[in-house]
Design a protein around this nucleic acid. Sequence first.
DNA 1: CCAGACTCGCGTACATGTACGCAAAAGTGT
DNA 2: ACACTTTTGCGTACATGTACGCGAGTCTGG
Lengths: 196, 196
Amino acid sequence: MTGNRAAWGTISRDQIVAAATRIVRAGAYENMTMRSLALELGVSPMSLYRHVRDKDDILDEVVDRLLARAWRPSSNHVEWEKWITSAADKLRRFLVAEPAALHVYLRHPVVTPAAISRMNAMMDVLRGALPDDDTARRAYAAIHTYTVGFAALEFSRSRWSDSSDNADDLVVQLASYTTREQFIDGLHALIRGLQC
Amino acid sequence: MTGNRAAWGTISRDQIVAAATRIVRAGAYENMTMRSLALELGVSPMSLYRHVRDKDDILDEVVDRLLARAWRPSSNHVEWEKWITSAADKLRRFLVAEPAALHVYLRHPVVTPAAISRMNAMMDVLRGALPDDDTARRAYAAIHTYTVGFAALEFSRSRWSDSSDNADDLVVQLASYTTREQFIDGLHALIRGLQC
DNA sequence: CCAGACTCGCGTACATGTACGCAAAAGTGT
DNA sequence: ACACTTTTGCGTACATGTACGCGAGTCTGG
């Protein structure tokens, strides 16, 4: 017998990602550490690194799986603006609800399968609605930027307790401008501007 | 004698922030750790915590000092759109050039003195250009969101080496859509849309 | 001037991600 | 079957932020 060593081939990349996905789905992203993950898989922490580059590598794949189930607009809107709005709002919700996703989106460009599917779907709609390809690309980039930016600020605000009471009225008012309505409002302004 | 203990009153909050500012200004933000900071101040790491809540507390103040010198538009543009564009671009540059600043902006609402000055200046301009106060506030919020979002994506892209060669053409094209021109382009679309 | 309260510097300790290299298990060619 | 290479699990170690509490220095009311 081998002391206390786990059997050869105990873990695979898929199992690691699956376990991580389960943990994140359970809302325990903050407590998902390499050590806790290893413990759950009955393996030593360093063993994970045989199958995975680093923690972000795992998160990339976890987030892709979650995104695949989260990005599609609620229904097939006839008007393209509604479809785009719904798609953008879905991504915003996703990023705010899933800190792991925001982490990934802010760390590097996301080019995983689900993200690419989503991009292609949005580009198809934008290409059909705007004069030329270049305009569509610029529109996509601007909308994406606004969406991720909004999600980042909305999330950062959510973990904020106003410790200082000397709070400027304007500050408070603006800091609280991270509601869904605000998002839609700004997004519509952006879309209007992109059509000119 | 007191063994090796630093003299009473050796450090103050101001000195800590000043030292941290020096380090960040020297571009060594990544290497600014509580330990290195303490070492430079001739003090034990834990001593810092008598004067500072945590590392982010220091960074907040450092970033405010740097922001104060970085946010103003280059010149007094007559047209408000140019002034706003310049101000937004200044913030974008600042956030991309200074990782510490991006970190702070993504972590919680920034309500330090320089940030408030900047906000008030922008609000003054927007109030003068748009029909009513509410519109101005919405405009500010949207522009701020877009600016911070763009900076975050631009920065995340800069630390990216395209490891996969199966890279979709579209992906590459869009991932590289983080240039100053793209920023200005999207910003102008947004501003156009806000005026309707 | 002195006792008690308060401020401050610090030693220890812990959780985290992960670099490095050893050794056991599995695979491979002969 | 045997020598080898490759794959895999893991022990150790380090840098990081920071919680906790001790004891020394300073201040304050009587």
